[in-house]
């Protein structure tokens, strides 16, 4: 699709317009409609279809929990904190932009200076009781450190069980097993990012 297609406000082709049935205007017409609907037996039509598909064994339902759907990269589930592919150290630099942009004010972090005089994030939490999964944090993150995962099975005694840094950060063994995936959703660089950025000269 091109931009022109989006700008075309003529939506007629491809759509079927449904006028709706005329509404009863008096008591007699209302009575007629109730009678007609009751006698028609639509319930049995539906039951017949279910029964037909069952005996044909042509079932389209996903067999959850045995079978799971592949989520879209843009799906916004419980967050993840990623590690740098090169070194395995945490990507988060503690800039606080996610904390600032969060519209439900559910992100908090504690930072301090470490012995190598770098800024480190000692603790990072998201209060999932308040999070609305809008995705702003992932979008604003300059390091692509906080991203949305696609883990939708969030059953636990407490929501807080997902919200600490240790819960969200890629575990080191998983990282070493090269299981960490780059996040392609909101905030990730587009494929043609190099073309859109003006490079600083490095001619020396």
């Amino acid at each position: 699709m091109e931009l022109r297609d989006f700008q075309n406000r003529n939506i007629n082709p491809g759509y079927i317009f449904f006028e709706g049935e005329t509404k009863p205007t008096n008591g007699w017409e209302s009575f007629k409609r109730v009678f007609k609907r009751s006698i028609k037996g639509e319930l049995f039509v539906g039951l017949w279809i279910v029964f037909r598909e069952m005996i044909r064994f042509d079932i389209h339902t996903v067999q959850y929990p045995a079978e799971k759907l592949e989520m879209s990269p843009r799906y916004r589930a419980i967050h993840k904190l990623l590690r740098l592919f090169e070194s395995g150290s945490e990507r988060c630099i503690g800039c606080g932009l996610c904390e600032k942009i969060c519209i439900s004010k559910c992100i908090r972090m504690d930072t301090h200076v470490d012995e190598k005089s770098r800024k480190v994030v000692s603790e990072y939490t998201i209060n999932f009781g308040r999070c609305i999964f809008c995705g702003y944090c992932a979008e604003v993150c300059p390091e692509l450190a906080i991203v949305h995962g696609n883990e939708y099975e969030n059953a636990s005694e407490q929501r807080a069980h997902f919200g600490l840094k240790e819960d969200m950060l890629t575990p080191l063994d998983e990282f070493k097993a090269k299981k960490q995936q780059e996040f392609p959703g909101f905030g990730a660089l587009s494929d043609h990012a190099n073309e859109t950025v003006k490079q600083t000269p490095l001619a020396y």
Partner: peptide, 9 residues
Amino acid sequence: FQYKSNAWE
């Protein structure tokens, strides 16, 4: 104060 808090907080 170094690296303890952002100014806007």
